[in-house]
Every structure is written in C-alpha cells, then in structure tokens.
Nucleic acid binder design. Structure first.
Lengths: 281, 281
DNA sequence: CATGCTCTTGAATCCCTAG
DNA sequence: CCTAGGGATTCAAGAGCAT
C-alpha cells in the first residue's frame, strides 16, 4: 500500500486501518499506542461505532496485529465509558472480555489521571470523572516493558543504601550488575498529565479527541524499546507520532480521514527526531 | 437474628452475611461500603472463593440488599484483579457484568489511589500497581450521592465570580438558591490516601485486608447521607464502622469470623460518635 | 525574574420543551 | 409515550500581560 507520507522516521497511511495493517510486514511493529473513537462518539468523522458493535469492531481491527507485532510487542488502548441516566456504559468491559476471548493477554490496567481533574463538566450531582483507562494487551504475558523509563529519581532505592547495585526493573531488560542504572524508581501504573494540549500546537491539532503529547510519550517510553517502531491505527492529530519521534522511536500512523492523515504528516514532519538512544531511554 | 454486639450507633453480627442480610428489615440501610475477600485470597479465614465462582458468589450475597437498601441506596465494593504469569485476572470484569445482568445499575468507577504508590511490591518488570477500584452499584441510576462532601474549598467556583449563588452539587441535594453552600468544589472520582493504617490502631487491626480508615470515611461521606446507616457485610477489623460513626452515621457490621466480629465490636465501641450532623456533611 | 490577574477552553450530561 | 434538540451548568491549566 502506498504511504500518504514518508520520511526516515515516520510513515503515514490514509486508509481503513484493517486494510493498512493487513499490508504491513510481519513482526515490524514494537508497540501500538492509540485512542480509538469511543462508542457513540465522533459520529461526524468516524461513523460512530455503536456500543453493541464495539467489542467485535475492536477484535477485528486488532486481529492483523497478531502478525504485525513482534512477539514481545504490546498494545495500549485508551477508551472510556460514557454516562447515561446516571449509569456508566459497559462496552469497555465487554470489549476487554472479547479481546481475551480472541486470544489476547491482558497485561495490566494503566490509568491516565487528569491533573487538576480535567474539565469540570459532566453530571453535576456526581463526582467529577477525572481519569481514563489505558488497557494494555499483548500476545502473551511476556511483553516487553521498561518499568523504569518513566520512573522518578529516588534517593532510597534499596541497592543504593546497602552498597549493592540498584537493578530495579533493569536486570529484566538485560542489564548487568556491573552497569546498573541506579537511583531511578519503578514508575507507577498511573500517568498524571493535564488534559490541555500544548497551545503552540493549537492550529495543527484541531481534532475532536487529541490526548496530550506528554501522555503519549509516557506510553511510548513504557512499551516501545528505544529505536523501535510505534503504530497508531487512529492517528488523528498525530500526537503519538510526535511523541514517538521526540523519544527516539519511529512511527507508523494510519487514519481513515484524509484531513487527519495530512495533519499527522504535517506535525510528524516538523518534529526534530531524537537519535540519542543511549541516555534518554 | 441476635446481634453479637449492639449500642446506640453500631450493631455487629457474627454470621454468614447472606443469612444476616436476609434477617435485616426492608429499606433499613442507606449505603454499603465493603472490601470483600478477593478471589483466591484469604483462604485461611474465608475459604478462598475461586475465580470462576466469584461473579455468582457476589450476585448471591448482594441479592438481599435489593430489599434491605433504601430505594436510593447504593453499594461501594473494593476488589482488585491479581496478576498471574504477567496477565491480570478477569474476575472483576465478569463480576461487574454479572451484577449488571442481575439488575444492578453500575453508577461509576471510583478509584483509590495509594499515595506514594503503596507497597513497592509486585512484578519487578512492570509498573508498580498503585490503585484499586471502588465499584459503585445502585438499584437504579438515581442513587443518593453528595458530590461536594469530599470536595475542597475553592476560590474560583463560577457563581462566586459573577454574584450568583454557588450551588455546585447542592441543588441536586435539595438546596435552595437562597441558602447556598458556597465555595466547595465537586470532589473527583479518585480518593488519594496512603495505605498506612493509623499506627495507634495497630494492636486492634490485625486483619489481612484492612483498608485505611480515611478511605472508608471518604466513601461513607460520598454515598451515605448524614445520620444514615452504613452496612459492611465483611466487617473485618471494622474500619468502615469506625469511619461511619466518626462521621455521624450509624453502622451495621457482619463478619463470619468471630474474631473479626469481636475486633469490629471493640473498635466501634471505642469510637466517639459525632452527632453534629449539621455542618460536617 | 517572581507574582498575580484576565482570558479561554474543554471526548460532558441533564433537564426541559417541542414535536 | 417516546425522541430530538437546545440551554445551563462549572473550574483548573496555562498563556499572556501588567505590575
């Protein structure tokens, strides 16, 4: 399939994601980081998947990934139930079970916590909904992950206190005792970022559902090794691509809406790539 | 059924919760706040419900609540999947769907965020799991809730700026424009508390799964009106009871293990009740 | 360069009214 | 009685500017 845009670090396709994914080489992608259209949302641009159809729709677009992903690759999906009549929808539950039934391994439940609580809208008689799920699936339970990538420097990691090397989450990645990556704590399963986009990008991020680039970067660093390939089948404004390139990964984006494929290409092409894989990981 | 312990503010039963609940008067409980034994956990004391049985087991113990709860009462359940072979268990998903199938309305997904990340345990190659779910169910979508009870004082509530009364989450509770409860923002759907118990309680809280009293208090204030009755069918060390009484509610606790019924009675009887329902709400 | 103010803007829901 | 559409609600982040 012919790319809509291509450079050394990014490839953007305009087309239906199932078709595009079917055309990608086997084991060519390390990680998928995406925020698909939620059920009943974005009707204007994506047709608005109905709740009842959502689990099957998700299983279908993810099926080609079983071939396209590397064996230790994984998928991070941001979806969220809506509230109707004071009750939350169940389509995310049913989607998770459908993916398990389809053979996917559910690795963990990660959370995006909206700093400051996010927009104060919603049901005025209920607590403000201030977090969203990042559902993490892999081909099996052994998916690649760097638990230290988003960790904070720490003064109290066990090894530093008693003279042993600090190897939290590091031996796991093949590190050796004599080259420890010391003083960084394991990250939590929660990413805390404001909902706001970078206002500098505002002209180029006119998309109904952009998530903040900092969140995308957190996800990329967690599940894609440095120098690897990140895929977003619902590229939208291209935030995942920007985050991937800014963190020394390559990007493959897909969008069925030409305007968004163009927007992704524009933003991705402007992002100065980071090639220093050594320290930033 | 004869209570194991009883005073003006608390009643503790020693027995199987399904039997005890069946013996309680209709519409006598405003809210249930509980942390049942997780699947495959606490085998020594509770027999260790198997994962496959967990949804049915939950539906069964909750069934009598449809009669015992007031029509606008609701239930807050703290359970958590475990990790095995790098994959999370699905029993909480299936339990939520089973409760929906049984006619319960799922009102929201609330979260307990463990301040500081909680114990740094778990799989060392993965992010530290630092939150747990509080699943909120009601008889229908109109359950009682005070969205402001746990809110923080705010200087920037809309009404304060332009002279209108600030009635966030207050009109909902029957407040009038001329008696606003101003300057308190709606709480978030996240409760952030450390995992630590009050060290003063340590002698009396030797229970395998105590959640912190501050978390229980947050839950009580959210879903039980001042002066109402809070029920915990898995009373354990009695933290829910302590929180209820300290916040001007009454408590009904049940535990199948006599040692825990006794522990609940002991802690509850020591807690000085708060009777000033006026301001603390 | 800190500090403080104004200004804008949200992946929202509910209620009420009109048909 | 059910459906569809429009108005009301409400607050933190961050930029830009003034002090």
């Amino acid at each position: 399939m012919t790319p809509y845009y291509e450079d050394d670090f990014a490839t953007i396709y305009h087309g239906d994601c199932a078709e595009v994914l079917a055309s990608l080489p086997s084991e060519s992608v390390d990680a998928v980081v995406t925020s698909p259209p939620y059920a009943e949302q974005r009707k204007a641009t994506y047709g608005g998947i109905r709740e009842a159809d959502y689990p099957g729709w998700t299983v279908r677009w993810m099926e080609p990934l079983k071939r396209v992903l590397k064996p230790d690759g994984s998928v991070l999906i941001n979806i969220r139930p809506h509230v109707l009549g004071g009750q939350i929808s169940d389509y995310t539950l049913r989607t998770r079970l459908a993916l398990r039934d389809a053979g996917w391994a559910e690795l963990d439940e990660l959370i995006w916590m909206k700093k400051g609580g996010g927009p104060p809208l919603g049901h005025s008689g209920r607590p403000r909904r201030s977090w969203e799920s990042l559902h993490w699936f892999g081909l099996d339970g052994r998916a690649w992950c760097d638990p230290v990538a988003n960790g904070a420097p720490s003064e109290s990691i066990g090894g530093l206190r008693d003279g042993r090397a600090a190897t939290a989450g590091w031996k796991h990645l093949g590190g050796h005792q004599n080259e420890p990556r010391p003083g960084i704590s394991r990250s939590l399963d929660v990413a805390t970022f404001s909902t706001r986009n970078n206002p500098n990008d505002s002209a180029d991020t006119n998309h109904p559902a952009p998530y903040p680039p900092k969140l995308a970067a957190w996800c990329v660093r967690l599940i894609c090794p440095p120098g690897g390939v990140v895929l977003d089948p619902f590229s939208g404004s291209g935030s995942t691509g920007v985050a991937a390139i800014a963190n020394g990964r390559r990007y493959v984006g897909v969008d069925v809406v030409e305007e968004y494929a163009a927007m992704s290409a524009r933003r991705v092409s402007k992002e100065p790539p980071v090639l220093d894989f050594g320290g930033a990981a």
